[in-house]
C-alpha cells in the first residue's frame, strides 16, 4: 500500500470517526430525554401526557420507517439550512443525527420499560419525585441495557456513515466508492472494509465490556 493511499485511508477514518461521534452525541442528547419521556408518559405513568406521547411516538415511528438513503435526500433543504451545504462530512452529520435520535429514543424507551415496576413503586413509597425516580432508579437500573443499545446505535451509525459516502458525505464509504469502485482499486476497497470491521469490533467489544461492568443482576461478576 502506497504512502498516499495510507494517508487517504487515515484521513477518511478520521472523517468517519468525526461524523459518527458528533451524530452519536447529538443523537443521544436528543434521543435520550425523548426516550425517557416516551417510557414514562403514557396514561397513569410518572409524567403522564398520553396525547403528547402519541404524537412524539408517531414522529419517531415516521423517521424510523423512512429508509436512510431517502431520508438523506429528503432533508437536503434542512441540511443546507443548518450547514450551508449538502455535501461533505459536516453536512452528513445532519441526516445521520436525524436518523439516530429516533433510534436512540426507542432503544432507551424499551430499556426503561424493562425496569421492574416494583422499583418505581418502592421509590414512590420513599417519597421520590418523578424526576428523582428517573435519575436515581430508572436510568441506573436500565444502564446495562442502555449501554448495549447505544453500542448498537454506534455500530449502525458506522454503517450509515459509510452510506452517506455514496451521496458525497466523505469518510470511509466515500473513499471506498470513489477509489475502490469508480477507479477500480480493489486493494483500497479491501482496506476500507478492513478498517470498518476493526472499528465495529472495537466498538462492540467495548460496549459489551461496559454493559457487563454495569450489570449487577447476575452473580457472575
Amino acid at each position: 500500500m502506497s504512502a498516499n493511499m495510507f494517508w487517504l485511508l487515515w484521513s477518511a477514518t478520521l472523517d468517519t470517526l468525526f461524523m459518527v461521534a458528533v451524530s452519536a452525541l447529538i443523537g443521544v442528547a436528543i434521543g435520550a430525554p425523548l426516550g425517557i419521556f416516551l417510557a414514562t408518559s403514557r396514561k397513569g405513568e410518572l409524567f403522564a401526557a398520553p396525547i403528547l406521547n402519541r404524537i412524539l411516538g408517531a414522529i419517531v415511528n415516521a423517521l424510523r420507517s423512512t429508509p436512510f438513503i431517502i431520508l438523506v435526500v429528503a432533508i437536503i433543504p434542512f441540511t443546507r439550512l443548518l450547514t450551508g451545504t449538502s455535501i461533505g462530512t459536516t453536512a452528513a452529520i445532519v441526516p445521520l443525527t436525524v436518523a439516530t435520535f429516533p433510534f436512540v429514543a426507542r432503544l432507551i424507551e424499551s430499556s426503561i420499560r424493562e425496569v421492574d415496576p416494583g422499583l418505581i413503586e418502592a421509590a414512590r413509597a420513599m417519597g421520590a419525585s418523578p424526576l428523582q425516580i428517573v435519575l436515581k432508579v430508572l436510568v441506573p437500573e436500565a444502564r446495562p441495557s442502555i449501554t448495549l443499545g447505544l453500542t448498537l446505535t454506534v455500530v449502525s451509525l458506522i454503517g450509515y456513515s459509510a452510506m452517506v459516502g455514496a451521496v458525497g458525505g466523505g469518510g470511509l464509504g466515500d473513499l471506498g466508492i470513489r477509489y475502490g469502485y469508480q477507479r477500480f482499486m480493489p486493494e483500497m476497497m479491501l482496506a476500507v472494509v478492513v478498517v470498518l470491521i476493526v472499528l465495529v469490533q472495537a466498538v462492540q467489544s467495548t460496549g459489551d465490556k461496559l454493559a457487563r461492568h454495569f450489570d449487577k443482576r447476575s452473580r457472575s461478576n
Binding site: 418502592a122 420513599m126 417519597g127 441506573p140 437500573e141 449487577k216 443482576r217
Partner: peptide, 19 residues
C-alpha cells in the same frame, strides 16, 4: 412525598435496586 418519609414500606419481592 414528605409524609411518605414517615411511612416505610416493604414488599413481597423486596423491590431492591439491582444496581
Amino acid at each position: 412525598r414528605t409524609l411518605r418519609r414517615s411511612v416505610g414500606m416493604i414488599f413481597q419481592h423486596f423491590n431492591l435496586l439491582s444496581s
